[in-house]
Each structure stands twice: as C-alpha cells, then as structure tokens.
C-alpha cells in the first residue's frame, strides 16, 4: 500500500512538472534572455540576444570550454534551442541530442535510422528542432515529422509527411 502511495506521489509530481515550454512562453520569448526557445530566438525573428556577458569588447578572447562529439562526420546547418540550462541540438543524419549547456555532457542522444539511397539536395543535414510542451519536433530526411520527449529523447510519435521516394 505504501508503495502505491509512493507511486501516486511520483505521478502527482510528474504532472506538476509537466508545464515545460508553453505557447505563452514562446510568445514571450523576449522576456527569457537566458533561453533560446525558437530557431530565431523569438517569433519576431531578430536572432538577437539581449545577454551581454559576451560583447564586442571580449568576443576576441573567447576560449573553448567544452566540446561535444556528435559521433558523425558532416556539418551543422542549424541553431540549437536552449531551455533552462539544457541545449537541444540536431546534426548530420538526423541525430538529435540534449546536453548540459554548462558542461557539454549528454543527457540523451537520438539517431534516426534512415533508409539507404537518400539523395537530399544539400547533404544529410538537419536544419533544427522546435519545442512545445514536453516535445521536440524534427523533420527527418526521409520526410517524416517526429516528436521526441525533451527529457529522455524517447520517440513520442512519428508521422509520414511525404513520400521521400518522390523527392
């Protein structure tokens, strides 16, 4: 019985922790300078951060603090999303990852298993993630849209957006 209570308490705690990135937060992204909630930072698309720890005076003295290996060759053509200390990114071959932004340590990694013979126009790149609630959304090279759980990287759903054979 005690254990049932314990489990119920965990469940309640989980529900309480559920509100992660609401639509209201996305709308008011300019009030969250420490976060980067959409591809361009906010809906106005300025790609401008009001943070000033790094500025024109010290930008030339930036030094490497950590490196994170995506474990694949290729290139990034994307902007990461940052929410409350977690950096969400995507890379070559539809990889996605969540890392501790301060240390570069991975929280989870996801890799899409892609079919052979894909010939996208501009390399096997991924152009970034979007976030809402507890889900990250990614468009894949085989023309699916998938949702990943922000905290675990688990696949939440996966739908076919188009037939990649016809590309």
């Amino acid at each position: 019985m005690k254990r049932t209570f314990f489990a119920a308490a965990l469940l309640l705690a989980a529900v309480a922790a559920n509100a992660q990135v609401s639509y209201e937060r996305l709308l008011g992204a300019d009030r969250e300078a420490k976060n980067w909630l959409t591809y361009s930072g906010r809906y106005s698309g300025w790609r401008y951060s009001t943070l000033n720890q790094i500025n024109t005076g010290n930008a030339s003295r930036l030094a490497l603090q950590w490196a994170f290996q995506v474990s694949d060759l290729g290139q990034f053509e994307t902007t990461p999303i940052v929410v409350d200390g977690v950096l969400y990114g995507s890379g070559q071959n539809d990889r996605a990852f969540a890392i501790d932004a301060r240390t570069g340590r991975a929280i989870w990694r996801y890799q899409r298993n892609l079919p052979d013979k894909l010939q996208p126009c501009c390399g096997m790149v991924n152009r970034g993630l979007a976030i809402l609630g507890n889900c990250l959304f990614m468009a894949t090279l085989d023309a699916h849209v998938i949702a990943l759980d922000t905290k675990t990287g688990n696949l939440v759903w996966d739908v076919t957006a188009a037939d990649y054979h016809k590309a």
Binding site: R3, T4, F6, A7, A8, L10, L11, A14, A147, D149, K151, T152, N154, L155, V156, W157
Partner: peptide, 14 residues
Amino acid sequence: GCASCHMVNGGGGR
C-alpha cells in the same frame, strides 16, 4: 503505478 516512471509508446513517466 508502473506508468508513473516508465513510458510505453509515448505515454507515461520519464
């Protein structure tokens, strides 16, 4: 109470 900590097909705990 398994689902409070375990996810199955996109539903459940983390």
